[in-house]
Design a protein around this nucleic acid. Structure first.
Length: 103
DNA sequence: ATGATGACGTGCG
DNA sequence: GCGCACGCCATCA
């Protein structure tokens, strides 16, 4: 995994506006990685600590938080989204229909 | 080198 | 809407 790729990923993630969300596949695509949805997840997970990157706005294509609900990171992401006005169910599900970012 | 694994996606039943 | 099987791609044991 080269730096340039990670760089593009974070750059795209940073473009997602507050109160909106984007899917891993969406980020991958905008970053020029057609089938790199997993890479995006990996990139975010590896960095996890904030570098000013709003990783909490990234969810899977099922409109669901992709972190096991048992994880503390899950709660963090859910709460942060709620703070931005996104209605997230306790199990981490939300309406892409209403919140997905449209470039 | 090989098979298992995971912050994913799509198609089907 | 849910669970499952498969396809994808980089790591890791």
């Amino acid at each position: 995994m080269d730096e340039a790729t990670l760089e593009r990923i974070f750059t795209v993630v940073a473009l997602v506006p507050k109160g909106r969300v984007a899917t891993y596949g969406q980020i991958a695509q905008l970053a020029g990685l057609p089938r790199g949805s997993r890479l995006v997840g990996r990139a975010l997970g590896h960095v996890s600590r904030d570098g000013g990157v709003p990783w909490h706005r990234i969810i899977n294509a099922q409109g669901r938080i992709s972190i096991p609900a048992s994880s503390p990171a899950f709660v963090l992401q859910r709460d942060r989204l709620r703070d931005e006005g996104v209605d997230v169910s306790s199990d981490g599900k939300l309406s892409l229909k209403r919140y997905q970012w449209v470039p």
